[in-house]
């Protein structure tokens, strides 16, 4: 049996890869994808604990996260499309209206 630490490590690695993607990439769509990566890293952790603890709550959480992630992707993509229509770019470095 594969010990839980492997799952957790995998989840953490995926989460960190997602975080680094969020922090470093400039394309808004890539950032959105990186966020999905982070969510899924968390999902792996939830499911691993659910299995380990023989408790379904974690799996239900994971299902929720998947549902929320789908909604988030829909809203996020819609925002990005609207943004693109407005500014003709999806580069987050150029979108800095929230400045001083």
């Amino acid at each position: 049996m594969i010990p839980i630490s492997h799952y957790l490590t995998l989840g953490a690695i995926i989460f960190i890869i997602g975080s680094i993607g969020v922090l470093t990439r400039k394309n808004a769509i890539i950032i959105l994808m990186s966020i999905e990566l982070m969510l899924n890293g968390v999902n792996i952790t939830l499911v691993a604990f659910s299995y380990h603890l023989a408790d379904l709550t974690g799996q239900i959480f994971a299902i929720f996260v998947v549902a929320v992630a789908a909604g988030e992707a829909a809203v996020g993509l819609a925002i990005i499309i609207a943004l693109f229509r407005c500014r003709a770019t999806v580069n987050v470095d150029e979108i800095q209206l929230l400045k001083w």
Binding site: T24, V92, I95, Q96, K99, W100
Partner: peptide, 9 residues
């Protein structure tokens, strides 16, 4: 206000 770069990153 220099902190508020407006850059999401």
């Amino acid at each position: 206000r220099r902190l508020h770069t407006g850059l999401v990153h």
